[in-house]
């Protein structure tokens, strides 16, 4: 069976600046891919193209076999996407927002209700269900974004910094949640917290200046550096040659 996520030669230029430079990789069911790189490396840009939001300059991406540009609606049905910064309509209540996404996804009546309840429980949002999103803390907002991405139980999850702004307990919960869902899904998580990658990712890709500079199992990547630490390895390969030398 082919991979649930397939990225081929994906490139994005902003004027003369190349933000993402011929990135290719695939993610199969059961894999949790940690997508790493320093700020500005092109992680969010890649994810926006994968979600079909940003049009690539060249290259293509497929989700569950559907081209994200040519067959966008079909691709998005199979995708749960948490955009960078977890944007949510501030004037809506948590439950109102989740009902909205359920309706857009075509769930009605009892099924919509069950989906929303399940998403609330997965993201531990039951206590704030009737609060307007704008009154929530950053961590809760991020979990609302996460709940929205999980609501339709999609085979593909693309999560841009899902644990940013969460406290250690919430981070732990999200990691556990992701590890629990991992066997049935193909998941990409961008982060710059390296322990997180070692804790929940079965594979890591490190990008710098828009290019893939490392791709492998986190432990194996860590062993590539004399210190055996992923952090040292990350620093060594993502710093510019001049700084590293």
């Amino acid at each position: 069976m082919s991979a649930l996520i397939e990225i081929r030669g994906l490139t994005k230029r902003f004027g003369a600046f190349t933000a993402v430079d011929h990135i290719s990789f695939s993610v199969a069911r059961g894999e949790v891919l940690g997508f790493l790189g320093p700020n500005g490396a092109g992680k969010s840009t890649t994810m926006k193209m994968l979600a079909g939001f940003m049009t690539p300059t060249s290259g293509s991406a497929r989700i569950a076999g559907h081209d994200v540009q040519g067959d966008a609606v079909a691709a998005r049905r199979e995708l749960g996407f948490l955009p960078e910064g977890a944007p949510v309509y501030p004037d809506m209540t948590v439950i109102g927002f989740l009902r909205f996404t359920a309706r857009v996804r075509g769930f009605h009546g009892g099924e919509a209700h069950d989906r929303v309840e399940q998403a609330l429980s997965l993201a531990t949002l039951e206590g704030v269900r009737h609060l307007p999103v704008e009154t929530l803390s950053k961590g809760f907002k991020r979990r609302v974004g996460l709940a929205q991405a999980l609501l339709h139980d999609p085979p593909v999850l693309v999560l841009d910094e899902p644990t940013d702004g969460l406290d250690p307990n919430q981070k732990y919960e999200v990691r556990t949640l992701i590890s629990r869902m991992a066997p049935d899904k193909a998941i990409i998580i961008s982060t710059h917290i390296l322990e997180e990658v070692e804790a929940m990712c079965s594979r890591a890709i490190i990008i710098a200046a828009g290019r893939v500079v490392a791709d492998g199992v986190p432990d194996e990547l860590a062993r590539r550096h004399p210190s055996g630490k992923l952090e040292e390895m990350f620093r060594a390969i993502t710093q510019k040659p001049a700084e590293a030398a």
Binding site: K48, A51, G52, F53, A72, V73, A74, R76, R77, L79, F81, P83, E84, G85, P87, V88, Y89, P90, T101, V104, R105, G106, G145, Q148
Partner: peptide, 14 residues
């Protein structure tokens, strides 16, 4: 301004 456009336009609709 809110960035919700990214959420809206990645839902399964044209």
């Amino acid at each position: 301004r809110l960035g919700t456009i990214e959420l809206l336009l990645t839902l399964p609709l044209t």
